[in-house]
């Protein structure tokens, strides 16, 4: 599904060039569940952003579902994000003035889906994630765990094939973190390809495959042996 070859992302800061990604080769099959770990500043977010087409590579090529997406225009990248990719962030990034249901509906609205269809899908995901009675609440009226569930609902309401989560539990207590991970895993069971950055070794060990990054490069990439 994902093929990165020689992927490099450089940032020029003053006179210095930082190699946030340094010549990374990576192959991901559809339906995989991958945890990305590594010390702070090792390039995990940069890798995820590049895969999510929020960022462009400085060097190397990126093929998504057998299409070369390296040189596509901004608008084409936006369309692919809209259709194929879901994002979940550490800080939820819900829009504060919109109700939970409106937040979830947003990607469908942006894609121009018709209102009846939108309403049906939003109701369905609210139900799925145990938020049926929270649809009318604004984000500041929700707990952290609920907010992250709303964010996941928003990321998946368009039924993307690829779900990218950057420290989705980083801002949650243990219990709500678990809930969130369970939801992500259930989505993976239903066939979504899941890439999750985490600092929590216990969570990382739940994945099928664990990639460890150091200094912008992949240090190790191995299957997790389940006990």
């Amino acid at each position: 599904m994902i093929t990165l070859s020689g992927a490099t992302r450089d940032f020029v800061v003053g006179e210095q060039t930082v190699h946030a990604l340094n010549n990374v080769d990576l192959e991901v099959e559809a339906g995989e569940y991958i945890a990305i770990v590594g010390p702070s500043g090792s390039g995990k977010s940069t890798l995820l952003n590049a895969i999510g087409l929020l960022d462009r590579l400085s060097k190397g090529t990126y093929r998504l579902e057998n299409h070369d997406v390296t040189g596509l225009s901004d608008d084409e990248l936006a369309r692919i994000r809209r259709e194929k990719i879901g994002f979940v962030f550490q800080f939820f990034h819900l829009i504060p003035r919109l109700k939970a249901s409106a937040n979830i509906e947003l990607p469908l609205t942006l894609a121009g889906v018709d209102p009846a269809e939108r309403a049906a899908r939003v109701t369905a995901v609210l139900e799925d994630y145990g938020l049926a009675d929270r649809g009318h609440h604004r984000p500041d009226q929700l707990s952290g765990g609920q907010r992250q569930r709303v964010a996941i609902a928003r990321a998946t309401v368009t039924r993307p094939k690829l779900l990218l989560a950057d420290e989705p539990t980083g801002n949650l207590d243990r219990t709500s973190g678990k809930d969130v991970v369970h939801i992500l895993e259930r989505l993976n069971d239903d066939g979504i390809t899941l890439l999750m950055v985490t600092h929590d070794p216990e969570l990382a060990n739940r994945a099928q495959r664990k990639i460890r990054m150091v200094d912008g490069a992949i240090e190790s990439d191995k299957a997790v042996v389940s006990l």
């Binding site: 994000r81 809209r82 990607p107």
Partner: peptide, 12 residues
């Protein structure tokens, strides 16, 4: 940033 990540184009 969010609506961009959700697939909004510049034009939108």
């Amino acid at each position: 940033g969010v609506i961009k990540a959700l697939g909004a184009t510049r034009r939108t």
